[in-house]
Design a protein around this nucleic acid. Structure first.
Lengths: 112, 112
DNA sequence: GTGGGTGCTTACCCTAGGGTGAGCAAGCAC
DNA sequence: GTGCTTGCTCACCCTAGGGTAAGCACCCAC
């Protein structure tokens, strides 16, 4: 537990958590991560349907950011109508695993 | 990994992560958690000094929310000038441990 | 030619959450 | 009386991030 960085790290990051929080900071990002983990390959429309409440604009921008962050991979097939498939990268998969204890914590407390 | 809840859970929570994200959702909450973990008992002013950039208003409101969420305990001594000490609850300590893998993930990626 | 399907983008609005600065109670030191 | 301390609160502003609705490209089916 004494392995985290102390203050003074570059760009104001105290420990790795801030870095992680920036990546999962969007309102729906953990849910996208979760869906892509459950089914390793999802199309845009599938994700929209699977995550009730999310709008196309936000889904698109979240996916773009997550792609830029290297946790999501986007594959576009040159077809009509267009087909685009999203999947987790290695890093995204590891991020999801790192979220597991947090999910457990939340699940325990919502039961209690 | 197949232990998380499926959609249809009460109040729109898909898995425990949403619950956890609500608790750590504030801009500075993970840092407060971290400081209280490093030193089990901190005064208000100490926290303000230890977390550069946070304002008194936000620190106070974050602490109040975290107390309401049951992750932080507030003890006020009837002295002048006033003395108030904050510490993690059992649940807060477990939350912090659950954040550890996430911190590790972030740390690895900021090195790379 | 009208409609449908897909994966977006663009323009706009709107609110929550955070930042700014001031004030306040209450006692002590000088 | 002036100032110092601590742990806040209150009033205000301001911006990022999200929600709303529309449009667009491309082809097919009818």
């Amino acid at each position: 537990m004494a392995t985290l960085n102390r203050p003074g790290a570059p760009d104001g990051h105290v420990c790795g958590i801030d870095t992680a929080m920036e990546v999962i900071g969007g309102k729906w990002k953990v849910l996208i991560l979760w869906e892509l983990h459950e089914h390793p390959c999802r199309r845009f429309g599938e994700l929209r349907r699977l995550i009730p409440g999310i709008t196309e604009k936000v889904l698109a921008s979240h996916l773009r950011e997550m792609e830029a962050d290297g946790v999501v991979r986007r594959v576009s097939y040159d077809e009509v109508p267009p087909r685009v498939e999203y999947s987790l990268t290695e890093d995204g998969t590891r991020l999801n695993k790192a979220l597991q204890p947090l999910a457990d914590w939340g699940r325990e407390r919502s039961i209690t």
